[in-house]
């Protein structure tokens, strides 16, 4: 690796310490914008209204309060519920369809099909939205979980298939063949060999699919209505009506973000693969 050269050369201890400090300073500098946005989100959500609209701004809340979260009300729980249903539905459906497909593509070397999947990911989501809107409207499916789950599936399925390709490729062919020779059917190989061996990959994939659905705004803003409105749309409508009421708004933003942040911090190694979808192989 390139950088080890600096370490291999024998330098004096102090010099090494200095360069370590330099790197740390650079890392902190690079991370400041990221950290500040999240800090500000939390800070706004914990401050009282007077401090939120004070100028110069108050950075550390002098009398931290959870009142902003309380102001979001019971309806917010409903939105969380909607989001969970839609994201879970799209993820489960995506995994049930995607895992066998991905396994098949690896097993029988359908590289071209894998490229089709990549193309499905590249197509702008908004181009599906117009025909779906018309279709779902005609079928009376607007503002139903069905419509939302199906639409989120389009975002999730290509990502699921693509991510799993890398994991199934790591299942040794010899092991699969050994199972076949022992009298296992190909379905048995999939169920008893491939799936158990890729369990961490399956978990990471499902989580990422869940996150994408959780974050989705474009489909939900058109296809969801009063009864199925998920979090991002609900929070967006908070902005429209209470523009200067920053506390609850920031609280809502933080509540949407929190689960995603926690999951990512704990599973980052697995999630990285999926995030650089198709760009980094495996």
């Amino acid at each position: 690796m390139a950088v080890t050269t600096t370490y291999r050369s024998r330098t004096i201890k102090t010099k090494r310490l200095l360069s370590a400090a330099g790197i740390y300073a650079l890392v902190l500098l690079a991370m400041t914008p990221t950290l500040f946005i999240f800090f500000w989100m939390v800070s706004l959500s914990l401050k009282v209204q007077v401090e939120n609209t004070a100028y110069p701004p108050v950075f550390i809340p002098s009398q931290p309060t959870l009142n902003n979260y309380r102001l979001l009300g019971n309806q917010f729980v409903e939105y969380v519920f909607n989001s969970v249903i839609i994201a879970t539905g799209a993820t489960v459906l995506g995994m049930v369809l995607g895992a066998p497909a991905s396994f098949g593509m690896v097993r029988w070397r359908y590289q071209r099909l894998a490229l089709v999947v990549l193309v499905a990911r590249i197509i702008p989501a908004i181009s599906f939205l117009v025909p779906w809107f018309i279709l779902f409207r005609r079928m009376g499916l607007l503002d139903t979980y069905t419509a939302l789950i199906l639409s989120h599936l389009v975002v999730g399925l290509p990502i699921i298939i693509w991510m799993l390709l890398a994991f199934f490729e790591d299942v040794p062919m010899e092991l699969q063949d050994a199972a076949l020779i022992d009298g296992c059917s190909i379905y048995g190989v999939f169920w008893r060999v491939a799936l158990p061996l890729t369990r961490p990959g399956l978990a990471a994939t499902a989580i990422l699919s869940f996150i994408f659905s959780w974050n989705n705004f474009l489909f939900s803003v058109i296809l969801a209505g009063r009864t199925t409105r998920p979090l991002p749309v609900a929070v967006f409508s908070l902005l429209t009506y209470e523009e200067i009421n920053w506390g609850p708004l920031a609280g809502a933003a933080f509540l949407i973000t929190l689960p995603v942040l926690i999951i990512t911090l704990f599973m980052q190694r697995h999630i990285v693969t999926g995030l650089s979808f198709g760009a980094v192989k495996g």
Partner: peptide
């Protein structure tokens, strides 16, 4: 560092 990519864009 990768948190921004997974954070809900609306938020």
């Amino acid at each position: 560092a990768i948190l921004p990519m997974v954070t809900t864009p609306v938020a």
